[in-house]
């Protein structure tokens, strides 16, 4: 009796301390997540000199769009943009078609090779030939330095196939298919009329994964692409953000002030190019956000 009473007395105290600490930690985290992103935004619209001197911390200073003008004039960003757009749209389309082609038969209980095929796919998750053997295959197929190298070698992801298959198995009742068959619908018709419309959440989620994967893909270009005009956005960004070479031209006829100004502008160009390249992805995300957790949950149940 006594013991229980002391625990009861303690409870509100311990919990309110917990709540306060929790709130404090979460508020700090909010700042930690938001500030770096916020800083890039305000630095991109601030006066380059002020950013250089470290005066821009919480709010933009000396608002100017100079950095964005520089981005617009920076040709290779736009060719990168165009290429990435193509790789993302076409690549994601290929991904989606193939993923459904893999996931649907594997979800059918009356498809005999199902079990062995799943094993065949799972093996590739844990074992791969590695860089050079894969490179040699892609080379042999004549895909090196073509747009296809950006889309074909990573046309499928086992993880996404499994997630999609699990969703099909768990959320589309077998009886629907029997009913559709009684109505005379064939496999293809049933797939398009019933299965796919019912699977919008998972299709949205894996579509997002694939699309973001293509948009952010830097690796494929590093390995397979040599031509300047085929480089995706991320390769251009790498040059801009991570190499020390001068991105803006400086001629010997410039005065020291001009050179200083150019150097500072080159720095803010980094911020504006981050914004220009990242905003499309961050815009895509809220569109599928409502499907996100649901799709992830149903799909990732071990099946």
């Amino acid at each position: 009796m006594d013991k229980r009473r002391t625990i009861k007395k303690k409870k509100p105290n311990a919990d309110s301390v917990f709540d306060m600490v929790n709130l404090a930690v979460m508020l700090v985290l909010l700042v930690v997540f938001l500030w770096p992103l916020w800083f890039v935004v305000i630095a991109s619209i601030s006066d380059p000199g002020q950013v250089w001197q470290g005066n821009v911390i919480l709010f933009p200073k000396g608002i100017t769009l100079d950095a964005y003008e520089e981005v617009i004039q920076y040709k290779s960003i736009w060719s990168g943009y165009r290429n990435t757009l193509l790789y993302t749209l076409l690549g994601t389309a290929i991904n989606m078609v193939l993923t459904v082609c893999a996931a649907y038969p594997l979800s059918r209980r009356d498809f005999p090779p199902r079990k062995i095929l799943i094993i065949v796919l799972m093996v590739t998750m844990y074992f791969s030939g590695g860089l050079i053997p894969t490179y040699l295959v892609v080379n042999r197929l004549g895909l090196i330095d073509t747009v296809w190298a950006m889309m074909i070698p990573n046309a499928l992801s086992v993880f996404n196939i499994i997630v999609t298959r699990t969703y099909f198995v768990n959320s589309i009742p077998e009886e629907l298919r029997e009913a559709a068959q009684l109505d005379g619908a064939g496999t293809v018709q049933y797939l398009f009329r019933v299965v796919l419309p019912l699977s919008k959440p998972i299709l949205a989620v894996i579509g997002l994964f694939y699309a973001v994967g293509h948009w952010n893909d830097f690796y494929s270009a590093l390995i397979y692409i040599n031509s300047q005009q085929l480089l995706p956005l991320q390769s251009v960004l790498r040059k801009l953000l991570l190499t020390t070479q001068m991105t803006l031209q400086i001629s010997s006829s410039m005065s020291p002030e001009e050179i200083m100004r150019k150097t500072q502008l080159a720095q803010t160009l980094k911020y504006s190019s981050i914004i220009v390249s990242t905003v499309p992805v961050l815009c895509l995300y809220p569109l599928v956000q409502k499907h996100f957790v649901k799709g992830m949950m149903i799909g990732s149940v071990k099946g």
Binding site: V100, G129, T134
Partner: peptide
Amino acid sequence: MILPVIAYYIIFAYIPMSGV
């Protein structure tokens, strides 16, 4: 449907594996 998927995994996963 599954044919192109199998082809993909043979070409881009199993042939490279034999390439080791």
